[in-house]
Design a protein around this nucleic acid. Structure first.
Length: 272
DNA sequence: CAATCAACCTGGGTGC
DNA sequence: TGCACCCAGGTTGATT
């Protein structure tokens, strides 16, 4: 489910709530969620730790701890991090719980069980997220940076945008939205985009992600924020999920095709 | 290296 | 009702 705007919404909600809180207990309900061999080290490494902040890199949430280790969370398709008072009614598909020192807890809920948790030291954190591409909302992400990265990729631009080592944080919804906004056809080879097209795409990515963030993310089905509430950006999508409906720009019928096993929505008339 | 595809999971929706 | 299929916001490991 969550792409950059959804993960960032959760981060912004959780940061003031979690910073300075101590973990007093850990319950792992589904051991498969924890991506490391020794469960004891995961649990014991968290107990007693103070959470020093909530950060994000691409679609990863990073919770640095007083020990110097970092709790890393990837929500994949259906994961959620829920901030709940102790005794709050159970959330379905809760896989792990961290109990905190002021009576609240964080619950990791994940219907499809694809999400992952790690407790890592600095070198392991680097190998986990070190290959990620630039943050698309960072000022250092310029059209020139994007152009250089697309440079010699012959794969379709849509597939290239989904590659997290190219740009970190775009997923299936916002890749389609960005390509529609820039009026670029998803199958175009990445390296063949002309400079003005790359400039348009860069602008579109920033616009699409910023708007989604302002709307607290897109809840097409599962996504929920840290309080369990849906986002509002689904009402602002321009192309994703609109197969058979009229293009907002030219009125032609929006098409759906399968590219790399993922649905892609586009206008075959005004995306060239 | 770059590109592709199956695999990892569960649940909701649809059509027979 | 039941059942078979298709679909879903993501990544990764094996294979060309």
């Amino acid at each position: 489910m969550p792409e950059l705007p959804e993960v960032e919404t959760i981060r912004r909600d959780l940061a003031p709530l979690l910073t300075g809180r101590q973990v007093v207990g850990v319950d792992v309900i589904d051991g498969k969620a924890v991506r490391q061999p020794e469960m004891d080290r995961f649990i014991e490494g968290l107990k007693g730790q103070v959470i020093e902040g909530v950060r994000r890199r691409g679609k990863y949430l990073l919770l640095p701890l007083s020990s110097g280790q970092t709790l890393v969370v990837h929500l994949k398709m259906t994961g959620a991090l829920l901030w709940r008072p102790a005794g709050y009614p159970p959330d379905p598909h809760t896989r792990a719980v961290w109990r905190l020192d002021q009576g609240q807890e964080i619950r990791f809920a994940d219907t499809r069980r694809l999400g992952n948790l790690w407790l890592v030291d600095a070198p392991a954190l680097d190998s986990l997220i070190g290959e990620l591409g630039p943050e698309p909302l960072d000022p250092s992400f310029t059209p020139q940076v994007l152009a250089a990265r697309l440079g010699r990729r012959s794969a379709p631009i849509k597939a290239t945008l989904l590659d997290q080592t190219m740009v970190a944080g775009l997923g299936n919804i916002y890749a389609d939205e960005s390509l529609w906004e820039a009026a670029i056809q998803p199958l175009r080879p990445a390296a063949k985009l002309a400079t003005p097209e790359v400039t348009r795409l860069h602008e579109a990515i920033g616009q699409v992600l910023s708007r989604a963030l302002a709307n607290r993310g897109t809840s097409f089905s599962d996504y929920r924020d840290a309080q369990g509430r849906p986002g509002a950006n689904q009402g602002h999508l321009r192309v994703y999920g609109r197969a058979g409906q009229a293009c907002y720009r030219c009125g032609a019928i929006i098409q759906r095709m399968v590219l790399r096993g993922r649905s892609s929505y586009f206008c075959s008339t005004c995306q060239e």
